[in-house]
Write a protein that binds this DNA or RNA. Sequence first.
DNA 1: CCTTGACTTGGAGTCGACTCCAAGTGATAC
DNA 2: GTATCACTTGGAGTCGACTCCAAGTCAAGG
Lengths: 134, 134
Amino acid sequence: MKIAEVSEKFGISSDTLRYYERIGLIWPVNRNASGIRDYNEIDLRRVDFIKCMRSAGLPVEVLIEYVALVQQGDKTIEARKEILIEQRDLLVARMKEMQKTLDILDHKIEVYENAVLKKEKEMIQTEDQALEII
Amino acid sequence: MKIAEVSEKFGISSDTLRYYERIGLIWPVNRNASGIRDYNEIDLRRVDFIKCMRSAGLPVEVLIEYVALVQQGDKTIEARKEILIEQRDLLVARMKEMQKTLDILDHKIEVYENAVLKKEKEMIQTEDQALEII
DNA sequence: CCTTGACTTGGAGTCGACTCCAAGTGATAC
DNA sequence: GTATCACTTGGAGTCGACTCCAAGTCAAGG
């Protein structure tokens, strides 16, 4: 699979895919005879993983470190686990913050909703008054 | 309340507080006789609101727009409501993404946990073998 | 009176994460 | 054979959001 197809498939620009490879965020992808990247199944799974992690806000730097550890084999399993746990905890914390914000947004939206309704009611009353007058 | 105290209270640097004011993200704060900012209760509530929204990732630009609408009074209630609803929906979407990532992280951590346990078990077996030999 | 220290300003600098660009290569279409 | 087109590279540019800096003001303490 060529880079443009991968870009299309995941909604990540070719530039970003190349950039990720350059900085060691995804493994060097195999090339065909003329030097063009040809993503295989495993490459795609890696891209998907990185996309997922990035979409949740895990820093590129941390992911680079993680990928480097994976490349070093089984002896780094403990270290990798620790990175993942740390990032999981940060993620949970961020989600909590977001939930708090969400509650406030919902509350504010409701207040605005009521304000709008009240305004409309007043307008209806005004209309009613107008009707009475006329 | 002076800027340093507000900074301390909310964990936002004085630079950032001044920056927020400069770009219209928080309202101009009253100054004392010598031109120094003196945050009152309402200012603090505004800072808290902005901090909360920013911590959930709402863009500065959107918040500037929202604050500008608030300053224009009741006639902008409908527009404000729409902004909040849009941002709420985006927030919910981001949280869903994050939940997906969280699930994957949890799963991976579990796998690593098992890998570590298996390794330890193998080591114990090796020890046992060593004991048997000796 | 002088120093200290927190404040003020506008503007420049930094950081993370892309995103764009120029110049070049190679396969396919006409 | 030449035009088109997607690809390649390294490096520069952009963007959002701060963060830092120099130069200056002012109030309080010694």
